[in-house]
Simulated assay, not measured.
Amino acid sequence: MDAPSDPPAPAAPQPSKLLEAMRQRIRVLHYCIRSEQACVDMKTTLMHTHVLNHGGE
């Protein structure tokens, strides 16, 4: 009998192009790293909320 094979591990999620563009813009404006993290976290939360409430419309 063949040994059961493990399914391939999922790849790490790639950052959104929108979030990368936002990070670059924040860096160009010389904001501190904590401000960058807070803005990205807020935008990520808003995007997830929109998808959950509106089904990605």
Results as ranks from 00 to 15, higher is better:
M1E: 07
M1T: 13
D2M: 08
D2F: 11
A3F: 07
P4W: 02
S5R: 06
S5T: 10
D6C: 00
D6P: 00
P7L: 02
P8F: 00
P8E: 03
P8W: 00
P8L: 01
P8N: 03
P8I: 01
A9V: 10
A9H: 05
A9I: 10
P10D: 03
P10N: 01
A11T: 11
A11H: 05
A11M: 04
A12F: 02
A12R: 05
Q14R: 06
Q14W: 00
P15R: 03
S16E: 12
K17G: 12
L18S: 11
L19A: 06
L19P: 04
L19C: 02
E20G: 03
E20M: 04
A21K: 07
A21M: 07
A21H: 07
R23H: 06
R23G: 02
R23F: 00
R23A: 05
Q24F: 03
Q24I: 03
R25H: 10
I26V: 09
I26Y: 05
R27F: 02
R27E: 13
R27A: 06
R27L: 04
R27Y: 06
V28C: 01
V28K: 06
V28Y: 06
V28S: 08
L29I: 05
L29E: 15
H30Y: 06
H30D: 15
H30C: 03
I33Q: 12
I33S: 13
R34S: 13
E36G: 10
E36D: 10
Q37R: 15
V40C: 10
V40G: 02
V40F: 03
V40E: 04
D41R: 12
D41C: 09
D41Q: 12
M42W: 11
M42V: 07
M42F: 12
K43P: 00
K43S: 11
K43E: 11
T44D: 11
T45N: 13
L46H: 08
L46Y: 07
L46F: 09
L46G: 11
M47S: 13
M47I: 08
M47Q: 14
H48L: 13
H48Q: 15
T49L: 15
H50Y: 15
H50R: 10
L52T: 04
L52W: 09
N53A: 12
N53R: 14
N53L: 12
H54M: 06
H54Y: 14
H54S: 07
H54C: 09
G55V: 02
G55Y: 06
G55L: 03
G56V: 01
G56W: 01
G56S: 13
E57P: 08
E57C: 09
E57K: 14
